[in-house]
Design a protein around this nucleic acid. Structure first.
Lengths: 226, 226
DNA sequence: ACCTGAACACCGTTCAAGT
DNA sequence: ACCTGAACACCGTTCAAGT
């Protein structure tokens, strides 16, 4: 089982941290973290307010002092995930990707190379693959789309739009409304990873394609002919 | 589709029926129908075995004689949905689409026109939009992917592959592995509709794009230059 | 072979009360 | 302002028993 999380234990971490194991101080944050952890370990069914409270070191109805109800707590988990995801997507991933960038069309500009979009999409796929339950939760049906969740979502969206505009400037993406192109890219990526997670992407044989493959396919089709 | 038909049931219906309101006799079918109906009306939370039993006219634990547990019942709902969906996608939709077909490149061949793929994708979007809860259920996380569900899924997939091959023959889709192209098309469609349902597709302003728009965009980018 | 009613453990939520 | 323990209605599942 999971050990107790004590208040004021570890130090809060930097931007880059993928953050599976942050103990955070305020009760509210600890409740969110506990819910996310239970989600990862046992799926949605494992997230009970009683267990959330136990993990956070409070009683099973203390959450009601911080959230309207269970749904509201889960919305906070989703919003936190959404707020972190673009940062995760943007972080450099390996030395090999850095060396690839040196051959890119915008080699001199740090962080704005010709496959910034591809990197973001890979980050998205990696996040969804690593935390499938959080991914499913984030894009679940929200009856009361909280303002917090909506803002986090549009922030994530505009980060992608900026990457698309960079790709258009570098002539690796076609012209046209960058918002719409970003939506297309997000749709393929999201759809591919969601289908893969639920086993609806033919997993074996000749038809096999990973989400990464499908994103690469799309980027190839999008590449201007010139 | 060769389940036993009991006495005073309605006759099993033709291929075309969208089938929201089929009374069927066997208890097993009635349980599945009741679950689907509750899902539509109140979301996953409304599907309780007690209410399912009440709607089907049996006790609240009669389902255990037909399904291992609640999850197994829900898997049967998903499998039924998956088995119906390709037929729904293939059905003719309006006179206008038939007249459009007359101008297509394969006008003489019934049901294999140049936008068979587009029609299927629109059918998919329409199904998901009309029954969002069934859609979310079907692509939810299945711990024990039942054989029935797997078979239904691959049948749906191969119907799309055939449409893709028709599009390639008509030169409206690029060459290449049709399975992989089908996966790309399904990914965009699925992703777009899933994002739209969860409100993550920018709903207003200049960036607005419907799932249908995004599918059309992709088909345009895929169209061979020749 | 199919179904029922009672029972059990568990859950979300409410509430009066404590600091 | 935040938290607790008891209580309530409800749920999935099991089981002994009925036809």
């Amino acid at each position: 089982m999971v050990d107790d999380v004590n208040p004021r234990s570890h130090i809060l971490v930097d931007d880059v941290n993928l953050a599976y194991d942050w103990p955070v101080d305020s009760t509210r944050e600890r409740l969110i973290e506990a819910a996310a952890r239970l989600l990862d370990e046992g799926g949605p069914a494992a997230v009970t307010l009683r267990e959330v409270g136990r993990l956070a070191g409070v009683s099973h109805n203390a959450p009601y002092k911080h959230f309207a109800d269970k749904q509201d707590l889960l919305a906070a988990v989703a919003a936190r995930e959404l707020a972190r995801q673009p940062r995760q997507s943007r972080q450099p991933r390996s030395p090999s990707s850095a060396s690839r960038r040196a051959g890119g069309t915008l080699a001199g500009v740090p962080g704005v190379d010709d496959d910034a979009v591809r990197s973001m999409m890979r980050g998205y796929i990696r996040w969804a693959t690593r935390y499938p339950a959080r991914f499913k939760l984030t894009f679940g049906s929200w009856s009361s789309a909280s303002a917090e969740l909506g803002e986090a979502a549009s922030a994530a969206r505009s980060a992608l739009v900026r990457a698309v505009e960079a790709g258009q400037a570098a002539r690796t993406l076609p012209d046209g409304d960058p918002d719409r192109l970003a939506a297309l890219l997000l749709a393929v990526t999201h759809g591919a990873v969601d289908l893969a997670l639920s086993g609806h992407l033919s997993k074996s044989g000749k038809g096999h394609a990973s989400p990464e493959d499908l994103v690469d396919d799309l980027l190839r089709y999008l590449r201007p002919a010139g």
